[in-house]
Amino acid sequence: MTPPETDLIGTNAIGDESPAVLACRKLTTLTQRRDFQRAARGKRVAMPGFVLQMLRRPDSSDDSIRIGYTCSKKVGNAVARNRAKRRLREVARAKLPTLGKNGHDYVLIGRNKTTAGLPFDQLLVDMEKALSILHVSRK
Score class of each variant (00 low, 15 high):
Leu96Asn: 06
Gly110Tyr: 00
Leu27Tyr: 03
Lys85Ile: 04
Glu90Cys: 07
Lys101Trp: 10
Glu128Val: 13
Ile9Trp: 09
Thr98His: 09
Gly100Ile: 01
Lys43Ala: 14
Asn82Phe: 01
Cys24Ile: 08
Arg138Gly: 09
Ile67Tyr: 04
His104Phe: 14
Ala92Glu: 11
Gly49Asn: 08
Ile67Val: 15
Tyr69Asp: 00
Ser64Glu: 09
Leu99Pro: 04
Pro48Arg: 04
Pro97Ile: 07
Cys24Thr: 04
Leu131Asn: 06
Asp35Ala: 05
Ile133Leu: 06
Met1Cys: 03
Gly103Ile: 07
Met47Phe: 10
Arg56Gln: 08
Leu131Gly: 03
Lys113Gln: 09
Ser72Tyr: 08
Thr98Trp: 10
Met47Gly: 06
Ala13Thr: 02
Ile14Ser: 15
Ile9Met: 08
Ser18Ala: 11
Ile109Ala: 04
Ile133Ala: 07
Arg41Cys: 10
Pro3Glu: 14
Arg56Val: 11
Cys24Glu: 11
Glu90Gly: 09
Ile14Arg: 15
Ile9Ser: 01
Arg44Trp: 02
Met1Ser: 13
Val79Ser: 00
Phe36Ala: 10
Leu134Tyr: 06
Ala116Gln: 07
Leu27Ala: 00
Arg41Ser: 10
Ile9His: 13
Leu8Tyr: 03
Ala23Asp: 11
Gly10Cys: 03
Arg25Val: 05
Ile9Gly: 05
Ala23Pro: 02
Ser132Thr: 01
Arg34Ala: 08
Ala46His: 02
Lys73Phe: 04
Gln53Cys: 01
Ala46Arg: 02
Ala130Gln: 06
Asn77Gly: 15
Glu90Phe: 11
Asn77Asp: 08
Leu52Tyr: 11
Ala78Thr: 09
Lys95Pro: 01
Asp16Ser: 14
Ala92Phe: 13
Ile133Pro: 00
Leu27Cys: 01
Cys71Gly: 11
Ala78Ser: 10
Pro4Glu: 10
Ala80Asp: 09
Leu27Thr: 04
Val125Met: 13
Val136Ile: 01
Ser18Val: 15
Arg89Trp: 13
Asp7Pro: 00
Ala84Glu: 02
Asn82Gln: 01
Ile65Val: 15
Asp59Ile: 05
Ile109Ser: 05
Leu108Pro: 12
Gly10Lys: 06
Leu52Trp: 05
Gly103Arg: 13
Met1Thr: 12
Ile9Ala: 10
Asp126Ser: 02
Thr70Gln: 06
Cys71Thr: 09
Asp62Gln: 13
Arg33Pro: 05
Gln37Trp: 11
Thr115Val: 14
Leu118Pro: 07
Gln37Gly: 08
Ala116Glu: 06
Arg111Pro: 00
Gly76Arg: 02
Glu90Leu: 12
Thr6Asp: 10
Thr31Ala: 12
Asn77Ala: 05
Val107Pro: 13
Lys101Ala: 14
Ala13Tyr: 04
Leu123Lys: 06
Asn102Cys: 11
Thr6Leu: 13
Leu108Gly: 03
Pro119Cys: 02
Gly110Met: 00
Leu8Cys: 05
Pro48Asn: 11
Asn112Met: 15
Ser18Cys: 15
Glu5Pro: 04
Tyr69Gln: 00
Cys24Gly: 12
Ser137Gln: 07
Leu22Thr: 10
Arg138Gln: 14
Glu17Pro: 09
Leu27Asn: 01
Gly15Arg: 07
Asp105Val: 01
Gly15Gln: 14
Thr31Leu: 09
Leu30Pro: 06
Ala39Trp: 14
Asp126Met: 06
Arg38Lys: 10
Ala78Phe: 08
Leu124Glu: 02
Ala130Tyr: 02
Arg138Thr: 12
Val51Gln: 04
Arg93Tyr: 08
Lys95Thr: 04
